[in-house]
Amino acid sequence: MGSQSKPPGQQPMENDDREAEAKPGARVDANVRAHLGRKLKTAYQSLIEEPVPDRFVKLLDELRNKEGKS
C-alpha cells in the first residue's frame, strides 16, 4: 500500500478503501431547514384540520365576555 494512498488520521478499514470522515462544523443550511419545515407541516397537518377542542372554545368565550365587561 502506497504511503500517499490515505490521508493521515484516516482509519484503515478491512475490505474498504473508501471510508471518508465527516467535515467538522457542518450545519444544515437554509434549504434543508425549509425542507424539514415542510415535512413537519405535513406531519402535523391533521392537527390543523381538526376542530379546536372545546376547552379552547370555552376559554375564548370567557375572554370575550371579560373584554365585553371592561
Binding site: R18, E19, A22, K23, P24, R27, V28
Partner: peptide, 19 residues
Amino acid sequence: IAMDLEALVTDVGHRVLGV
C-alpha cells in the same frame, strides 16, 4: 457519482463507511 455523493455527505457532517 460515488465521489460526488461522498463529498456531498461528508460536507454536511456525515461519515462514509464505504462505497
